[in-house]
C-alpha cells in the first residue's frame, strides 16, 4: 500500500513539473531546459514572500505562484521573443544559458543555504493515514490534489476557453494562426507564464514538504525524460509518462537497487525513443519539425 502511495506522490510530482515542458513546446516548439531553474525561482519567491510579509500560508503560496507567472511572462517578453525566427536549437541553447544565469542569481539573492519555508510560514505537515495503512504527508497529499486540479484545469482551458483554443491553433499551424489574426506573441507569453506557474507550484510544494536548496533545479531536469517519454506535445502523455517513470523508479528502489533510481528515467527514455521516437502520445510529424 505504501508503495502505491509513493508511486502516486512521485508520479504527481513528475507530472506537475513535466506539464510545463509540454505547454511551451506545444505552442512554440521550444524545449525549455531552464524549467528546473524557473521552478526553483518560484520556490525561492515563496521564501521571500514568507519572510517579507505576515500573510497566512495559503495566501503566501498564492502570491508566490502569481509572481512566478509574471516571471514566466517576463522571460518571454525580454528574452525568448528575440529568438523568434531563429532555429529551434538556438532557442533551446538560450534556455540553457538562462538556466545558468538563474542559478547564479538565486545564490546571489538567497544564498546557497538550505531554506525551510514551511517553518517560517508556521505550516504544520502532519502525516495522514489512508485506507490500507499507507501514510502520506499533508503536503504530499496537497501535491497530488493540485496536480489533479492543474491537469483538469489545463484540459478544460485548452479545450473550451478562447485563449486555449488559440494556443492549440498556434501550436498546430503558426502561420495560419497568425494570418487569422491570432497574436502569436501573446499566446507564447501566456504559455511561458502558465508553464512557469505550474512548475513553481510544484517547486513550492516540494520546498514546503522537504526544504529548499539549489538542487531543486536538478529535480526539474529529472522530470524532463517524463515529458519526452509521453510525447513532448501531449499533456495526456506526460501524465502517463510520469506514472511509468515513477513506477519504475519506486519499484527499483524497493526491489532491486536504490542506486539505479538516477539512471532509470533515462534508460526508459532511451527505450521509448528507439521504439517510438515521437513519444507514447506525441504526434508523429513533430519529428521533422525539430
Amino acid at each position: 500500500m505504501q508503495l502505491a502511495v509513493n508511486i502516486v506522490v512521485l508520479a504527481a510530482t513528475y507530472a506537475l513539473i513535466a506539464c510545463g515542458y509540454v505547454l511551451i513546446y506545444r505552442v512554440s516548439r521550444v524545449l525549455n531546459l531552464a524549467h528546473g531553474e524557473l521552478m526553483m525561482v518560484g520556490a525561492y519567491l515563496l521564501v521571500t514572500v514568507a519572510s517579507a510579509s505576515a500573510l497566512p500560508p495559503l495566501l503566501a503560496v498564492g502570491l508566490a505562484a502569481a509572481l512566478s507567472l509574471g516571471v514566466g511572462v517576463l522571460v518571454h517578453l525580454f528574452l525568448m521573443r528575440r529568438l523568434t525566427g531563429q532555429p529551434a536549437l538556438a532557442a533551446v541553447l538560450t534556455t540553457i544559458g538562462l538556466g545558468i544565469l538563474l542559478r547564479g542569481l538565486v545564490v546571489l539573492l538567497w544564498s546557497a543555504e538550505q531554506q525551510h519555508p514551511a517553518q517560517s510560514l508556521g505550516l504544520a505537515n502532519p502525516p495522514i493515514t489512508l485506507f490500507g495503512g499507507g501514510r502520506i504527508s499533508t503536503l504530499s497529499l496537497a501535491l497530488v490534489l493540485t496536480t489533479g486540479a492543474v491537469y483538469g484545469g489545463l484540459f478544460a482551458f485548452l479545450r473550451f476557453s478562447r485563449w486555449g483554443i488559440r494556443m492549440r491553433a498556434a501550436g498546430q499551424n503558426p502561420l495560419l494562426a497568425a494570418q487569422r489574426g491570432i497574436n502569436l506573441n501573446g499566446i507564447y507569453a501566456v504559455a511561458w507564464g502558465l508553464s512557469t506557474f505550474t512548475g513553481s507550484v510544484a517547486g513550492i510544494l516540494i520546498a514546503l514538504d522537504s526544504g529548499l536548496d539549489t538542487t531543486m533545479a536538478t529535480i526539474g531536469l529529472k522530470a524532463f525524460p517524463v515529458a519526452l517519454v509521453g510525447g513532448l506535445d501531449s499533456l495526456l502523455g506526460s501524465l502517463l509518462g510520469a506514472l511509468i517513470v515513477a513506477t519504475a523508479e519506486v519499484v527499483l528502489i524497493q526491489y532491486v537497487d536504490p542506486l539505479l533510481s538516477d539512471v532509470v528515467p533515462f534508460l526508459i527514455l532511451m527505450a521509448v525513443l528507439l521504439a517510438r521516437p515521437w513519444g507514447l502520445f506525441g504526434s508523429r510529424e513533430e519529428l521533422d519539425r525539430v
Binding site: N6, V9, L10, T13, T218, I219, K222, P258, S261, D262
Partner: peptide
C-alpha cells in the same frame, strides 16, 4: 542499506524500504 542520489525529489521511497 539505502543509497540516495544527491538530488532526490522525494526521500519517501528510500525511507519506506528502510522502515519495512
Amino acid at each position: 542499506k539505502e543509497i540516495v542520489p544527491p538530488a532526490a525529489p522525494d526521500y519517501t521511497p528510500f525511507a519506506t524500504k528502510l522502515q519495512q
